[in-house]
């Protein structure tokens, strides 16, 4: 189900009336106060035009859209809002441009929302097979791989597919899905994406706590984490690796050199924290493999 199903009218209807070739390649829907709603697809962009939809977005309209997206239950989504997004069932993420209310160094909440960016989460089956075969050819068959790319280059989509493949091969995979984006959690037992037969999902868990809980209680062969940070996240990755668990993760970076320049990641790459790193590019299409590094390359 597309994320427009969660919008109120007239936006929902306007998006449902898009030509099929547009809706099939639609990647982002952007609401900005005082501007037309803009659609971004693979290789195209255009304003949303529909007889029932206003030409530009008013502050009241953006408030209404948010109210509907959170199902009139802001209290249930404040933790996500603090981090600047909300996730819809199906793993679609809505980024929020707003003014932060800060207490000390902590964002307490956001107000005066000026923009929304709905990113469509799609399960694409296939690209993971290519990667798994490629790494098998290089004798890196465990799952301790790092998928590296800038935003919108297909990291999460590839992670999802690799999780499904490893899981369907019988490996016990636990996905730490802090933002409900990988599995597309939509309520108890309802997931937007197929992650394979042997996958458990820790939905909404912070990464470090999720990794620790997974090791302690779920006996995983592989732990999958999206958008790894530094500090406690990396300590938890080491803990998993020392416990004999493979870690499949994604991280934001433009290249391997950029990643290797980060002091926190140097030991992980140098000492088998990850046995392979794959750099993806958004061009010509998201998910394009640009660089491949394996731990064999170190020796």
């Amino acid at each position: 189900m597309g994320p427009w199903q969660y919008l109120p009218n007239p936006w929902r209807q306007a998006l449902m009336d898009l030509p099929r070739d547009r809706s099939a390649t639609l990647e982002e829907i952007r609401f900005r106060i005082g501007r037309p709603v803009f659609l971004y697809g693979t290789g195209w962009q255009m304003p949303l035009s529909h007889p029932d939809a206003p030409g530009s977005v008013s502050p009241a309209e953006i408030e209404r859209v948010i109210e509907v997206l959170v199902e009139h239950s802001l209290y249930a989504r404040v933790d996500e809002l603090r981090q600047g997004y909300i996730t819809l069932p199906g793993g679609h993420r809505v980024g929020i441009a707003a003014r932060a209310v800060v207490d000390g160094r902590r964002v307490v909440t956001v107000r005066q929302i000026t923009g929304l960016n709905m990113r469509i989460g799609r399960a694409v089956k296939g690209p993971g097979e290519h990667l798994v075969h490629l790494l098998a050819d290089r004798s890196v068959e465990d799952g301790s791989w790092l998928l590296v790319s800038p935003p919108r280059a297909g990291k999460t989509t590839l992670l999802r597919d690799v999780v499904r493949i490893l899981s369907d091969r019988g490996r016990r995979v636990v996905v730490i899905d802090e933002r409900s984006e990988v599995a597309g959690f939509g309520g108890a037992g309802v997931f937007g994406h197929d992650l394979g037969a042997h996958t458990d999902v820790l939905d909404g868990w912070p990464k470090a706590e999720g990794i620790e809980a997974a090791i302690r209680t779920l006996g995983p062969d592989v732990i999958a984490v999206d958008e790894l940070g530094e500090g406690r996240d990396l300590e938890a990755v080491w803990q998993a690796r020392h416990s004999g668990v493979d870690v499949l993760a994604t991280v934001h970076a433009r290249s391997l050199d950029e990643l290797k320049a980060r002091p926190a990641y140097q030991p992980l790459l140098a000492r088998d924290g990850f046995r392979a790193a794959v750099v993806l590019s958004a061009r010509p299409v998201p998910g394009t493999l640009r660089e491949l590094w394996t731990s064999w390359d170190v020796t």
Partner: peptide, 10 residues
């Protein structure tokens, strides 16, 4: 006011 603020304010 229902649903318009965080849990503490609710």
């Amino acid at each position: 006011v229902l649903g318009t603020s965080d849990a503490d304010h609710q």
